[in-house]
Amino acid sequence: MTPDEMKVRDYILKIYDGDVTKCMHCGKCSASCPAYGEMDIKPHQFPSYVAHGEIAALMDSKTIWECLGCSACVERCPRGVKPGKLIDGVRQAVIRQRGGSHLYPEQIPAMVDPETPQQLLVSVLRRERK
C-alpha cells in the first residue's frame, strides 16, 4: 500500500465507521444485493479488499457506481459489517478526490426541487453525514 493509499483507506474507514475484521465471508450481503450482477467487485469482497489494502482497485471498480444504496446488505448482515457503508465510503473518497463536486449548505435550497419530500432530504443527509 502506498502512503497515499493508506491515507485514503483511513479516510474511507472514517466514513465507514465499522469493523471489517468482523466479516465471516458468509455472502449474505451479495446474496441480498439487487445490483449484484452489474458489479465487478462484489459486496462481500469489499471488507477483505479494505483489510488487504487494495484501495486502488476498489476506487476503480464499477461497483461503487452500481450500488443502489438500498442498504439490504447493511440490514441483513449477521455480523454488523455494513458492506453498503463501506461502498459509500469508497464512493465518497473518489468524489472528494476529484474535488469541487460538492455543495455548500447555502446552495442546497436553490438546487432542490420544491416537490422533494423533506423526509428524503433528511434521510440522505443522515446516511451521508460523515
Binding site: 455472502g27 446474496a31 441480498s32 462481500h44 439490504a72
Partner: peptide, 20 residues
C-alpha cells in the same frame, strides 16, 4: 459456499432461492 439472500414463493408452488 455462500448465504441465501431471499426465498420467494412462486405462483406455481415452487420456491425461488436466491443466493451466491
Amino acid at each position: 459456499k455462500g448465504n441465501v439472500g431471499k426465498v420467494t414463493p412462486l405462483p406455481n408452488g415452487k420456491l425461488r432461492v436466491h443466493g451466491v
